[in-house]
Design a binder for these strands. Structure first.
Length: 282
DNA sequence: ATCCAGGAAAACG
DNA sequence: CGTTTTCATGGA
């Protein structure tokens, strides 16, 4: 079974990374093994101190997917500016932003609006089980996330079983757009952060927050700073106590928070966001 | 029952 | 133009 050994200056926490809410297709067994589907691969992986043991993908894929090539200490040091974010960095030590497949990430965050994480996971699982290709792996059947053509041609009765609610037409419309346009990923990836953000928001169901999540998790645009209800609370309480006054002058509250974070935390503010988000509970 | 959750579209002034 | 309302779902 493939094993990957982490070096001393390569902090990584599999649990923090997979359970912080950035991905929705991983589950942890009581024995410490995680299993998930990435593309057409079923992957099982566990961490014991500095060693990662896994099946279902070559080491190079694991390294790329979990961003193990990122110099995490340098990244976190770049926004370690005050005691509050410092505490989040320490408590979520080893959290890395995953490089997600863009199409699945796009649909996932369309399904995520105004929902909690368990509900999002159920919806994605429903979509995969209803429209995805079955994948047999070690006595169990998993399902690949369905491609654009599958969702574009989905009948409404099957789709309604996926419990997407009012998001169903957004998913189908976006799938139709993507099914036509082959090079959609490259055409967005080559754009600047702001331009890519506008391009993503042209898809039905993708607003400012979803666009920032997709840019952060699938396009490696680390200057994205998604503002959900948790982050808004945290930012208002710890960084922008005068926000209600400011945002009335400068326009939308979302942009006020986003631009403050970009200036305050710097080029890796998306990473800072993820540490604040992951540390929000415990 | 009421409120909330990795919000966005549509309607409204 | 910025601000409020509506939307479907399940858990607390």
């Amino acid at each position: 079974m493939p094993v990957l050994s982490l070096t001393n200056n390569q902090p990584f926490s599999l649990d923090r990374t997979l359970s912080c809410g950035q991905v929705f297709r991983w589950d942890r067994e009581p024995d410490g093994w995680w299993h998930g589907v990435v593309g057409s691969r079923v992957i099982r992986i566990r961490q014991d101190g500095p060693s990662l043991t896994f099946t279902g993908a070559p080491p190079a894929f694991i390294r790329q997917y979990f961003s193990l090539d990122t110099d995490l200490d340098t990244v976190t040091a770049s926004f370690d500016r005050d005691p509050f974010i410092h505490d989040a960095i320490v408590r979520c030590h080893g959290l890395r932003i995953i490089r997600q497949p863009a199409w699945e990430c796009l649909i996932s965050y369309i399904c995520a609006t105004n929902s909690n994480i368990p509900m999002i996971k159920k919806r994605i699982a429903h979509l995969a089980q209803t429209f995805g290709t079955p994948l047999k792996f070690e006595e169990r059947t998993y399902f690949a996330f369905p491609g654009p053509a599958s969702l574009a041609g989905s009948c409404m009765s099957a789709l309604s079983g996926c419990k997407l609610g009012y998001r169903s037409p957004y998913v189908v419309e976006t799938a139709c757009d993507i099914a036509d346009e082959k090079g959609w990923y490259d055409s967005i990836a080559k754009l600047s952060y702001e331009q890519a953000r506008l391009a993503l928001m042209k898809f039905q169901g993708v607003g400012p927050k979803a666009a920032d999540c997709i840019l952060l998790f699938a396009f490696q645009k680390y200057e994205a700073f998604p503002v959900d209800v948790w982050i808004r609370r945290i930012m208002r309480e710890h960084y922008l106590k005068t926000l209600s006054f400011e945002s009335a002058l400068t326009g939308g509250e979302y942009d006020t928070i986003r631009r403050f974070a970009q200036q305050y935390f710097g080029t890796f503010c998306g990473y800072a966001q993820e540490y604040l988000y992951a540390a929000r509970l415990d």
